[in-house]
Design a protein around this nucleic acid. Structure first.
Lengths: 193, 193
DNA sequence: TCAACCATGTAATGTGTTACATGATTGA
DNA sequence: TCAATCATGTAACACATTACATGGTTGA
Protein backbone atom coordinates (compact mmCIF):
# COMPACT_ATOMS: atom_id res chain seq x y z
CA UNK A 1 0.00 0.00 0.00
CA UNK A 2 1.71 3.19 -1.07
CA UNK A 3 -1.33 5.44 -1.57
CA UNK A 4 -2.22 5.61 2.16
CA UNK A 5 -5.93 5.74 1.37
CA UNK A 6 -6.70 2.91 3.76
CA UNK A 7 -3.84 3.36 6.21
CA UNK A 8 -5.57 3.98 9.52
CA UNK A 9 -2.66 5.48 11.41
CA UNK A 10 -1.87 7.96 8.67
CA UNK A 11 -5.49 9.10 8.54
CA UNK A 12 -5.68 9.43 12.30
CA UNK A 13 -2.58 11.63 12.23
CA UNK A 14 -4.17 13.75 9.50
CA UNK A 15 -7.27 14.00 11.66
CA UNK A 16 -5.31 15.36 14.60
CA UNK A 17 -3.43 17.78 12.37
CA UNK A 18 -6.76 19.38 11.35
CA UNK A 19 -6.76 20.87 14.88
CA UNK A 20 -3.39 22.58 14.57
CA UNK A 21 0.14 21.99 13.28
CA UNK A 22 2.12 19.71 15.58
CA UNK A 23 5.39 17.85 15.94
CA UNK A 24 5.49 14.06 16.09
CA UNK A 25 5.98 14.24 19.82
CA UNK A 26 2.96 16.48 20.27
CA UNK A 27 0.84 14.25 18.05
CA UNK A 28 1.68 11.29 20.26
CA UNK A 29 0.73 13.27 23.37
CA UNK A 30 -2.60 14.28 21.91
CA UNK A 31 -3.17 10.71 20.82
CA UNK A 32 -2.73 9.63 24.44
CA UNK A 33 -5.05 12.31 25.73
CA UNK A 34 -7.81 11.61 23.24
CA UNK A 35 -7.91 8.60 20.91
CA UNK A 36 -6.10 6.32 23.38
CA UNK A 37 -9.38 4.86 24.64
CA UNK A 38 -9.93 3.43 21.17
CA UNK A 39 -6.40 2.67 20.11
CA UNK A 40 -2.92 2.99 21.58
CA UNK A 41 0.01 3.79 19.36
CA UNK A 42 3.75 3.92 19.96
CA UNK A 43 6.06 6.83 19.35
CA UNK A 44 8.01 4.64 16.94
CA UNK A 45 4.95 4.32 14.73
CA UNK A 46 4.33 8.06 14.48
CA UNK A 47 7.62 9.12 12.89
CA UNK A 48 7.52 6.70 9.95
CA UNK A 49 3.85 7.60 9.40
CA UNK A 50 4.73 11.30 9.23
CA UNK A 51 7.50 10.50 6.76
CA UNK A 52 5.04 8.62 4.54
CA UNK A 53 2.49 11.45 4.77
CA UNK A 54 5.12 13.99 3.84
CA UNK A 55 6.27 11.98 0.86
CA UNK A 56 2.67 11.70 -0.32
CA UNK A 57 2.29 15.47 -0.03
CA UNK A 58 -0.47 15.22 2.57
CA UNK A 59 1.50 17.15 5.18
CA UNK A 60 4.19 19.86 5.13
CA UNK A 61 7.08 20.14 7.55
CA UNK A 62 8.67 23.22 9.13
CA UNK A 63 11.73 23.26 11.36
CA UNK A 64 11.08 25.24 14.55
CA UNK A 65 14.20 25.90 16.65
CA UNK A 66 13.60 26.30 20.39
CA UNK A 67 15.61 27.68 23.30
CA UNK A 68 16.94 25.04 25.70
CA UNK A 69 15.00 22.39 23.85
CA UNK A 70 15.70 20.38 20.69
CA UNK A 71 14.48 21.77 17.40
CA UNK A 72 10.98 20.60 16.55
CA UNK A 73 9.71 19.37 13.21
CA UNK A 74 6.26 20.86 13.00
CA UNK A 75 3.88 19.25 10.52
CA UNK A 76 0.78 20.86 9.03
CA UNK A 77 -1.94 19.26 6.93
CA UNK A 78 -2.09 20.35 3.29
CA UNK A 79 -5.18 20.86 1.14
CA UNK A 80 -4.41 17.52 -0.45
CA UNK A 81 -4.22 16.03 3.03
CA UNK A 82 -7.65 17.34 3.96
CA UNK A 83 -9.13 15.83 0.84
CA UNK A 84 -7.45 12.48 1.58
CA UNK A 85 -8.84 12.50 5.13
CA UNK A 86 -12.35 13.22 3.90
CA UNK A 87 -12.15 10.43 1.35
CA UNK A 88 -11.14 8.01 4.08
CA UNK A 89 -13.85 9.21 6.45
CA UNK A 90 -16.53 8.91 3.78
CA UNK A 91 -15.53 5.38 2.79
CA UNK A 92 -17.67 2.63 4.35
CA UNK A 93 -16.21 1.17 7.50
CA UNK A 94 -14.97 -2.37 7.46
CA UNK A 95 -15.17 -4.18 10.78
CA UNK A 96 -11.91 -4.33 12.61
CA UNK A 97 -10.80 -7.83 13.46
CA UNK A 98 -12.06 -9.11 16.81
CA UNK A 99 -9.29 -10.28 19.07
CA UNK A 100 -10.54 -10.56 22.62
CA UNK A 101 -7.93 -12.67 24.30
CA UNK A 102 -9.12 -12.37 27.86
CA UNK A 103 -12.23 -14.55 27.65
CA UNK A 104 -10.11 -17.21 25.91
CA UNK A 105 -8.89 -18.34 29.31
CA UNK A 106 -12.50 -18.78 30.34
CA UNK A 107 -13.17 -20.68 27.14
CA UNK A 108 -10.50 -23.23 28.07
CA UNK A 109 -11.05 -23.02 31.81
CA UNK A 110 -12.02 -26.68 32.11
CA UNK A 111 -8.30 -27.39 32.23
CA UNK A 112 -7.55 -25.40 35.40
CA UNK A 113 -8.73 -25.06 38.97
CA UNK A 114 -11.86 -23.06 39.61
CA UNK A 115 -10.05 -20.81 42.11
CA UNK A 116 -7.41 -19.67 39.62
CA UNK A 117 -10.12 -18.78 37.16
CA UNK A 118 -12.03 -16.79 39.77
CA UNK A 119 -8.85 -14.84 40.54
CA UNK A 120 -8.39 -13.99 36.86
CA UNK A 121 -11.94 -12.73 36.60
CA UNK A 122 -11.72 -10.68 39.78
CA UNK A 123 -8.52 -9.02 38.60
CA UNK A 124 -10.09 -8.23 35.26
CA UNK A 125 -13.09 -6.72 36.95
CA UNK A 126 -10.86 -4.53 39.11
CA UNK A 127 -9.09 -3.31 36.02
CA UNK A 128 -12.42 -2.57 34.36
CA UNK A 129 -13.41 -0.42 37.34
CA UNK A 130 -10.11 1.44 37.22
CA UNK A 131 -10.44 1.98 33.48
CA UNK A 132 -13.98 3.26 33.93
CA UNK A 133 -12.76 5.74 36.55
CA UNK A 134 -10.22 7.00 34.01
CA UNK A 135 -12.89 7.37 31.37
CA UNK A 136 -15.07 9.34 33.77
CA UNK A 137 -12.14 11.70 34.31
CA UNK A 138 -11.77 12.06 30.57
CA UNK A 139 -15.48 12.78 30.25
CA UNK A 140 -15.15 15.57 32.78
CA UNK A 141 -12.09 16.94 30.97
CA UNK A 142 -13.93 16.94 27.65
CA UNK A 143 -16.83 18.77 29.25
CA UNK A 144 -14.47 21.43 30.57
CA UNK A 145 -12.83 21.78 27.18
CA UNK A 146 -16.24 22.29 25.67
CA UNK A 147 -17.30 24.92 28.17
CA UNK A 148 -14.06 26.86 28.28
CA UNK A 149 -13.59 28.10 24.73
CA UNK A 150 -10.08 27.21 23.61
CA UNK A 151 -9.07 27.66 19.99
CA UNK A 152 -7.08 24.47 19.84
CA UNK A 153 -10.09 22.28 20.75
CA UNK A 154 -13.11 23.45 18.75
CA UNK A 155 -16.49 22.57 20.28
CA UNK A 156 -17.67 20.70 17.22
CA UNK A 157 -14.71 18.34 17.54
CA UNK A 158 -15.17 17.80 21.25
CA UNK A 159 -18.74 16.75 20.72
CA UNK A 160 -17.65 13.85 18.52
CA UNK A 161 -14.88 12.98 20.95
CA UNK A 162 -17.50 12.61 23.65
CA UNK A 163 -19.54 10.27 21.50
CA UNK A 164 -16.47 8.17 20.75
CA UNK A 165 -15.61 8.07 24.44
CA UNK A 166 -19.11 6.75 25.13
CA UNK A 167 -18.17 3.76 22.96
CA UNK A 168 -15.25 2.98 25.22
CA UNK A 169 -17.37 3.43 28.33
CA UNK A 170 -20.08 1.08 27.08
CA UNK A 171 -17.40 -1.43 26.10
CA UNK A 172 -15.81 -1.38 29.54
CA UNK A 173 -19.15 -1.54 31.33
CA UNK A 174 -19.84 -4.65 29.28
CA UNK A 175 -16.60 -6.20 30.52
CA UNK A 176 -17.50 -5.34 34.12
CA UNK A 177 -20.99 -6.82 33.76
CA UNK A 178 -19.64 -9.95 32.14
CA UNK A 179 -17.18 -10.50 34.98
CA UNK A 180 -20.09 -10.22 37.39
CA UNK A 181 -22.08 -12.75 35.42
CA UNK A 182 -19.22 -15.25 35.32
CA UNK A 183 -18.49 -14.86 39.04
CA UNK A 184 -22.13 -15.40 39.88
CA UNK A 185 -22.42 -18.40 37.59
CA UNK A 186 -19.32 -20.08 38.96
CA UNK A 187 -19.88 -19.44 42.66
CA UNK A 188 -23.56 -20.38 42.48
CA UNK A 189 -22.44 -23.74 41.19
CA UNK A 190 -20.03 -24.21 44.11
CA UNK A 191 -22.75 -23.61 46.68
CA UNK A 192 -25.52 -25.50 44.91
CA UNK A 193 -23.58 -28.55 43.65
CA UNK B 1 9.94 -16.39 21.49
CA UNK B 2 10.77 -20.04 20.96
CA UNK B 3 9.31 -21.48 24.17
CA UNK B 4 5.69 -20.84 23.13
CA UNK B 5 4.69 -20.14 26.75
CA UNK B 6 3.02 -16.87 25.82
CA UNK B 7 2.06 -17.66 22.23
CA UNK B 8 -1.72 -17.33 22.21
CA UNK B 9 -2.44 -19.20 18.99
CA UNK B 10 -0.35 -22.19 20.03
CA UNK B 11 -2.13 -22.40 23.38
CA UNK B 12 -5.54 -22.08 21.76
CA UNK B 13 -4.66 -24.97 19.44
CA UNK B 14 -3.55 -27.01 22.45
CA UNK B 15 -6.85 -26.16 24.12
CA UNK B 16 -8.85 -27.49 21.19
CA UNK B 17 -6.73 -30.63 21.01
CA UNK B 18 -7.73 -31.47 24.60
CA UNK B 19 -11.14 -32.34 23.12
CA UNK B 20 -9.82 -34.87 20.61
CA UNK B 21 -7.00 -35.39 18.11
CA UNK B 22 -7.53 -33.35 14.97
CA UNK B 23 -5.93 -32.35 11.69
CA UNK B 24 -5.05 -28.71 10.98
CA UNK B 25 -8.08 -28.42 8.76
CA UNK B 26 -10.39 -29.76 11.46
CA UNK B 27 -8.85 -27.43 14.04
CA UNK B 28 -9.62 -24.48 11.81
CA UNK B 29 -13.22 -25.66 11.39
CA UNK B 30 -13.69 -26.04 15.13
CA UNK B 31 -12.10 -22.63 15.63
CA UNK B 32 -14.74 -21.17 13.33
CA UNK B 33 -17.56 -22.96 15.09
CA UNK B 34 -16.48 -21.97 18.57
CA UNK B 35 -13.75 -19.44 19.35
CA UNK B 36 -14.49 -17.33 16.26
CA UNK B 37 -16.66 -14.91 18.25
CA UNK B 38 -13.54 -13.93 20.18
CA UNK B 39 -10.89 -14.24 17.56
CA UNK B 40 -10.69 -15.21 13.90
CA UNK B 41 -7.66 -17.02 12.57
CA UNK B 42 -6.57 -17.96 9.09
CA UNK B 43 -5.78 -21.43 7.81
CA UNK B 44 -2.30 -20.21 6.99
CA UNK B 45 -1.64 -19.48 10.67
CA UNK B 46 -2.64 -22.95 11.86
CA UNK B 47 -0.10 -25.02 9.96
CA UNK B 48 3.01 -23.12 11.12
CA UNK B 49 1.64 -23.14 14.68
CA UNK B 50 1.24 -26.92 14.56
CA UNK B 51 4.79 -27.25 13.26
CA UNK B 52 6.09 -25.18 16.19
CA UNK B 53 4.05 -27.19 18.68
CA UNK B 54 5.37 -30.44 17.24
CA UNK B 55 8.95 -29.26 17.40
CA UNK B 56 8.45 -28.26 21.04
CA UNK B 57 7.08 -31.73 21.80
CA UNK B 58 3.68 -30.40 22.86
CA UNK B 59 1.80 -32.35 20.18
CA UNK B 60 2.36 -35.60 18.28
CA UNK B 61 1.46 -36.24 14.67
CA UNK B 62 0.03 -39.33 12.99
CA UNK B 63 -0.53 -39.78 9.30
CA UNK B 64 -4.04 -41.04 8.60
CA UNK B 65 -4.62 -42.14 4.99
CA UNK B 66 -8.21 -41.81 3.75
CA UNK B 67 -10.15 -43.18 0.82
CA UNK B 68 -10.91 -40.67 -1.92
CA UNK B 69 -9.53 -37.89 0.27
CA UNK B 70 -6.02 -36.62 0.91
CA UNK B 71 -4.09 -38.16 3.79
CA UNK B 72 -4.65 -36.28 7.03
CA UNK B 73 -2.02 -35.29 9.55
CA UNK B 74 -3.75 -35.88 12.84
CA UNK B 75 -2.26 -34.12 15.86
CA UNK B 76 -2.76 -35.14 19.50
CA UNK B 77 -1.75 -33.24 22.60
CA UNK B 78 1.05 -34.79 24.69
CA UNK B 79 1.39 -34.81 28.47
CA UNK B 80 3.95 -32.04 28.08
CA UNK B 81 1.42 -30.15 25.99
CA UNK B 82 -1.25 -30.41 28.69
CA UNK B 83 1.18 -29.06 31.26
CA UNK B 84 2.14 -26.19 28.95
CA UNK B 85 -1.53 -25.31 28.40
CA UNK B 86 -2.20 -25.30 32.14
CA UNK B 87 0.79 -23.06 32.79
CA UNK B 88 -0.52 -20.59 30.23
CA UNK B 89 -4.07 -20.72 31.61
CA UNK B 90 -2.86 -20.15 35.16
CA UNK B 91 -0.69 -17.16 34.25
CA UNK B 92 -2.27 -13.77 34.92
CA UNK B 93 -3.97 -12.27 31.90
CA UNK B 94 -2.50 -9.21 30.31
CA UNK B 95 -5.00 -6.94 28.60
CA UNK B 96 -5.10 -7.34 24.89
CA UNK B 97 -4.48 -4.14 23.00
CA UNK B 98 -7.59 -2.09 22.29
CA UNK B 99 -8.02 -1.31 18.63
CA UNK B 100 -11.55 -0.19 17.92
CA UNK B 101 -11.31 1.43 14.55
CA UNK B 102 -14.97 1.97 13.86
CA UNK B 103 -15.63 4.81 16.32
CA UNK B 104 -12.51 6.55 14.94
CA UNK B 105 -14.62 7.82 12.08
CA UNK B 106 -16.99 9.31 14.62
CA UNK B 107 -14.05 10.83 16.46
CA UNK B 108 -13.04 12.72 13.31
CA UNK B 109 -16.56 13.20 12.01
CA UNK B 110 -16.33 17.00 12.14
CA UNK B 111 -14.60 16.75 8.78
CA UNK B 112 -17.50 15.14 6.89
CA UNK B 113 -21.17 15.64 6.23
CA UNK B 114 -23.62 14.63 8.92
CA UNK B 115 -25.54 12.40 6.48
CA UNK B 116 -22.52 10.28 5.59
CA UNK B 117 -21.83 9.73 9.26
CA UNK B 118 -25.42 8.69 9.92
CA UNK B 119 -25.16 6.17 7.11
CA UNK B 120 -22.01 4.68 8.63
CA UNK B 121 -23.68 4.32 12.00
CA UNK B 122 -26.83 2.79 10.57
CA UNK B 123 -24.81 0.24 8.63
CA UNK B 124 -22.81 -0.65 11.73
CA UNK B 125 -25.99 -1.09 13.70
CA UNK B 126 -27.42 -3.40 11.07
CA UNK B 127 -24.29 -5.49 11.24
CA UNK B 128 -24.50 -5.61 15.01
CA UNK B 129 -28.05 -6.96 14.74
CA UNK B 130 -26.95 -9.59 12.23
CA UNK B 131 -24.02 -10.60 14.42
CA UNK B 132 -26.30 -10.86 17.45
CA UNK B 133 -28.62 -13.15 15.49
CA UNK B 134 -25.63 -15.37 14.73
CA UNK B 135 -24.64 -15.45 18.38
CA UNK B 136 -28.16 -16.43 19.37
CA UNK B 137 -27.92 -19.34 16.94
CA UNK B 138 -24.63 -20.33 18.51
CA UNK B 139 -26.18 -20.14 21.95
CA UNK B 140 -28.91 -22.51 20.84
CA UNK B 141 -26.34 -24.86 19.32
CA UNK B 142 -24.29 -24.90 22.52
CA UNK B 143 -27.42 -25.69 24.51
CA UNK B 144 -28.18 -28.61 22.23
CA UNK B 145 -24.63 -29.88 22.52
CA UNK B 146 -24.97 -29.71 26.27
CA UNK B 147 -28.25 -31.57 26.36
CA UNK B 148 -27.42 -34.23 23.82
CA UNK B 149 -24.45 -36.10 25.30
CA UNK B 150 -21.74 -36.26 22.68
CA UNK B 151 -18.27 -37.48 23.62
CA UNK B 152 -16.45 -34.95 21.52
CA UNK B 153 -18.01 -31.99 23.36
CA UNK B 154 -17.92 -32.66 27.12
CA UNK B 155 -20.49 -30.75 29.15
CA UNK B 156 -17.89 -29.10 31.36
CA UNK B 157 -16.28 -27.55 28.30
CA UNK B 158 -19.55 -26.36 26.81
CA UNK B 159 -20.39 -24.53 29.99
CA UNK B 160 -17.30 -22.36 29.68
CA UNK B 161 -17.94 -21.87 25.99
CA UNK B 162 -21.33 -20.46 26.88
CA UNK B 163 -19.80 -18.02 29.31
CA UNK B 164 -17.27 -16.90 26.73
CA UNK B 165 -20.04 -16.47 24.18
CA UNK B 166 -21.85 -14.22 26.65
CA UNK B 167 -18.82 -11.91 26.46
CA UNK B 168 -19.28 -11.55 22.73
CA UNK B 169 -23.01 -10.99 23.10
CA UNK B 170 -22.54 -8.24 25.68
CA UNK B 171 -19.88 -6.66 23.47
CA UNK B 172 -22.14 -6.63 20.43
CA UNK B 173 -25.12 -5.36 22.41
CA UNK B 174 -22.88 -2.52 23.54
CA UNK B 175 -22.14 -1.65 19.93
CA UNK B 176 -25.84 -1.71 19.07
CA UNK B 177 -26.71 0.52 22.04
CA UNK B 178 -23.93 2.93 21.21
CA UNK B 179 -25.14 3.27 17.62
CA UNK B 180 -28.59 4.09 18.99
CA UNK B 181 -27.12 6.70 21.29
CA UNK B 182 -25.16 8.37 18.50
CA UNK B 183 -28.13 8.36 16.12
CA UNK B 184 -30.33 9.93 18.77
CA UNK B 185 -27.74 12.53 19.70
CA UNK B 186 -27.13 13.57 16.10
CA UNK B 187 -30.74 13.63 14.89
CA UNK B 188 -31.99 15.42 18.01
CA UNK B 189 -29.55 18.16 17.13
CA UNK B 190 -30.89 18.43 13.59
CA UNK B 191 -34.44 18.93 14.77
CA UNK B 192 -33.67 21.14 17.77
CA UNK B 193 -30.98 23.38 16.22
C1' DT C 1 -19.61 -27.17 -15.54
C1' DC C 2 -18.90 -24.71 -11.63
C1' DA C 3 -18.63 -23.81 -6.86
C1' DA C 4 -17.75 -25.65 -2.48
C1' DC C 5 -15.35 -28.74 0.32
C1' DC C 6 -11.30 -31.42 1.72
C1' DA C 7 -6.34 -30.99 2.66
C1' DT C 8 -1.76 -29.24 2.70
C1' DG C 9 1.44 -25.70 2.76
C1' DT C 10 4.85 -21.24 1.31
C1' DA C 11 5.85 -16.35 0.34
C1' DA C 12 5.17 -11.61 0.46
C1' DT C 13 3.47 -7.91 2.67
C1' DG C 14 1.53 -5.15 6.32
C1' DT C 15 1.28 -3.76 11.04
C1' DG C 16 2.57 -3.55 15.89
C1' DT C 17 5.93 -3.96 19.71
C1' DT C 18 10.29 -3.79 21.95
C1' DA C 19 14.83 -2.59 22.14
C1' DC C 20 18.45 0.34 20.76
C1' DA C 21 20.52 5.02 20.23
C1' DT C 22 21.23 10.00 21.63
C1' DG C 23 21.18 13.96 24.63
C1' DA C 24 19.63 18.35 27.19
C1' DT C 25 16.50 20.25 30.93
C1' DT C 26 13.61 20.23 35.01
C1' DG C 27 11.89 18.98 39.42
C1' DA C 28 11.79 15.82 43.57
C1' DT D 1 21.13 11.85 41.87
C1' DC D 2 17.49 9.92 39.67
C1' DA D 3 13.36 9.93 37.13
C1' DA D 4 10.58 12.38 33.99
C1' DT D 5 9.95 15.28 30.05
C1' DC D 6 11.21 16.99 25.55
C1' DA D 7 12.67 15.49 20.96
C1' DT D 8 14.22 12.61 17.24
C1' DG D 9 14.70 8.43 14.97
C1' DT D 10 16.35 3.08 13.46
C1' DA D 11 16.36 -1.98 13.78
C1' DA D 12 14.81 -6.35 15.04
C1' DC D 13 11.27 -9.16 15.91
C1' DA D 14 6.46 -10.79 16.37
C1' DC D 15 2.16 -11.43 14.49
C1' DA D 16 -1.64 -10.97 10.91
C1' DT D 17 -3.31 -10.95 6.22
C1' DT D 18 -3.42 -11.93 1.42
C1' DA D 19 -1.89 -14.14 -2.40
C1' DC D 20 0.15 -18.03 -4.47
C1' DA D 21 0.37 -23.09 -5.29
C1' DT D 22 -1.73 -27.83 -5.85
C1' DG D 23 -5.29 -31.20 -6.70
C1' DG D 24 -9.11 -34.64 -5.92
C1' DT D 25 -14.32 -35.25 -4.65
C1' DT D 26 -19.14 -34.02 -4.25
C1' DG D 27 -23.42 -31.95 -5.24
C1' DA D 28 -26.33 -28.41 -7.67
Amino acid sequence: MNDLSSAVLENAVLGLLTLRPMSGYEIKQLFDKSISFLWRVHMSQIYPALARLKEAGLVEMDLVPQEKKPTKKVYSITRKGRRALQTWLRAPVQDSAVRDLFPLKVFFARNIERETLLEHITERQDRAQATLALYRDMERLFKELQEGDIDSYPKEDIRFWQLALRWAILREEGVRDWCNLVLKDLTQDMKGG
